[in-house]
Amino acid sequence: MKNSGLVKEKLGNKVTISMYKESACSHCNKCSDSAKIANDFTFISNGEDIKVGDIVTFEMEDNQVFKAAMVVYIFPLIVMFLAYFTAAKIGLSEGECIGASFGGLIIAFMGIFFYDKFIVKNKMEKSVKIIGIEKR
């Protein structure tokens, strides 16, 4: 997956960029620059000469992006259905089964939050490859 963004901060080998939105309207001049920014992303630089204000084009491994999408979109549904069928198997009423499925969904999202914060962030920081640097 290719993306680009404006370098906001560089501390040692950690670079923080404001990623540009990837859409057809993100590159026109009709709206302000703040409307073109999606969010901030931090990664580890491999010695490239990057300075604050540069525009960096980078690429992340497709398998990392695919794994993240699977965890975020599929895992909560699986947990939700498992919680429902487990509650039904132990003899709870229909309403209690629905409550258990939403409880499983909440637990799944909490798990994703901690998985993202402590595991995925470190993997993503290391899997970024710089393709191009536009000096400002």
Rank of each mutant, 00 (worst) to 15 (best):
K2I: 14
N3Q: 15
S4I: 10
G5C: 06
L6R: 12
L6H: 10
K8R: 15
E9L: 10
E9R: 12
K10P: 03
K10M: 08
L11W: 06
L11P: 03
G12F: 03
K14S: 06
V15Y: 00
T16A: 02
I17H: 04
I17Y: 03
S18T: 08
K21I: 09
A24M: 15
C25D: 10
H27G: 12
K30C: 14
C31Y: 15
C31K: 11
S32I: 13
S32R: 12
A35Y: 12
K36R: 14
I37C: 13
N39K: 15
F41W: 05
F41M: 02
T42G: 00
F43S: 01
I44W: 01
S45P: 11
N46L: 13
E48S: 10
D49W: 07
D49Y: 05
K51D: 15
V52H: 12
D54E: 08
V56W: 02
V56F: 04
T57Y: 09
F58E: 00
F58K: 00
F58W: 03
E59A: 06
M60I: 02
E61W: 03
D62F: 12
Q64I: 12
V65I: 14
F66K: 15
K67W: 13
A68K: 05
A68W: 01
A68H: 04
A69V: 10
M70W: 11
V71A: 08
V71F: 10
Y73D: 09
Y73P: 06
Y73T: 09
Y73N: 09
P76E: 05
P76V: 03
L77R: 13
V79A: 05
F81Q: 07
F81K: 09
L82S: 09
A87W: 02
I90Q: 11
S93H: 08
E94L: 11
E94Y: 10
G95W: 11
I98P: 00
G99D: 06
A100V: 14
A100Q: 04
A100S: 15
S101G: 05
S101L: 01
G103E: 02
I106M: 01
I107G: 04
F109V: 04
G111D: 05
G111H: 06
G111S: 06
G111R: 03
I112A: 00
I112Q: 01
D116V: 01
K117S: 06
K117P: 02
K117F: 02
I119R: 02
V120Y: 06
K121Q: 01
N122I: 02
M124T: 04
M124G: 02
E125W: 00
E125K: 05
K129C: 09
I131F: 05
I131Q: 11
I131G: 06
G132D: 14
I133M: 06
I133E: 07
E134G: 12
E134C: 09
E134D: 15
E134S: 13
R136P: 12
